[in-house]
């Protein structure tokens, strides 16, 4: 092998497409030629260094929340969450008979009108707060009122005088998880957003700083996906699961603030 032949094979080397015999020839030439040895070593460094980088990188929680919010806004901020109902109806409609489509269209319009009317009547504070607020359960939203500045505070305003244990009733739950998170507020916001995303609803207790527990009720078919998505909020500290029957699953998620070093 000569210098030119070695250089021509460098791309194939980086692509991992060389035969053993070709590789041996390259190494033999490199051992005898200083320039080619350097070139070959450099190719090996590029391959090893770039190849050791991960194909996926964890998205910071605030960035996760940010693009989701942007998509919801794009979907029609004012319509959400009733937009979801409309979208669901639309999806159903696509697979229905033509005469049913008209019925669904009217139903969707009614849902939107009634939903919007109900929201306007019952929750004047909603528009004044962060979009995340919408993710809070209706009770929490309506009772916390205009004083709420963030979903977390809204929940505290409602549950601040409630002992943590009242939420942890004696009931059958599908899973109970505890996570430690450095960015406590972002972890809580993520749990709340994911709950909405997977068609669930939550109640929460946050009686002290840096600790929260969520009781999440969601359709069983989404349970696994939900738990997998939630697992990114922090490092798992505890995990229990049980086989419980029913269309709806109850999950407890506990978030503990980790003090950063």
């Amino acid at each position: 092998m000569n210098c030119e032949q070695l250089r021509r094979l460098l791309d194939a080397y980086m692509d991992g497409e060389l035969s053993d015999a070709q590789l041996r020839e390259m190494e033999a030439h490199a051992a005898a030629c200083e320039d080619c040895r350097r070139e070959f070593e450099a190719a090996k460094l590029v391959r090893d260094a770039l190849g050791s980088l991960p194909e996926e990188v964890d998205v910071p929680l605030e960035a996760q929340a940010s693009w989701r919010r942007a998509v919801r806004e794009e979907a029609g901020r004012d319509a959400w969450p009733d937009e979801r109902t409309a979208a669901y109806v639309r999806a159903k409609r696509n697979s229905s008979h033509r005469w049913m489509r008209a019925v669904y269209a009217v139903a969707a319009a009614l849902v939107l009108v009634l939903g919007a009317t109900a929201m306007l009547g019952r929750m004047p504070a909603r528009k004044a707060v962060e979009p995340l607020m919408v993710a809070a359960s209706e009770d929490a939203a309506s009772e916390s009122g205009a004083a709420a500045a963030s979903p977390t505070q809204a929940v505290v305003a409602r549950d601040g005088d409630v002992e943590a244990s009242t939420l942890l009733q004696d009931e059958s739950y599908a899973a109970r998880k505890a996570y430690g998170a450095e960015d406590f507020a972002a972890a809580c916001a993520t749990v709340e957003e994911l709950t909405e995303e997977y068609g669930g609803k939550f109640t929460t207790d946050q009686t002290g700083g840096g600790w929260a527990v969520y009781r999440v009720e969601l359709p069983r078919e989404y349970l696994e996906d939900f738990l997998s998505a939630v697992s990114h909020v922090g490092e798992e500290q505890n995990s229990e699961s049980a086989d419980v029957a029913g269309d709806t699953a109850v999950v407890y998620i506990e978030i503990n603030e980790l003090k950063s070093e």
Binding site: R68, V71, A87
Partner: peptide
Amino acid sequence: RASSGDPEAFNR
């Protein structure tokens, strides 16, 4: 579902 405009399906 995302194609039919369902943002929650899209997010998932």
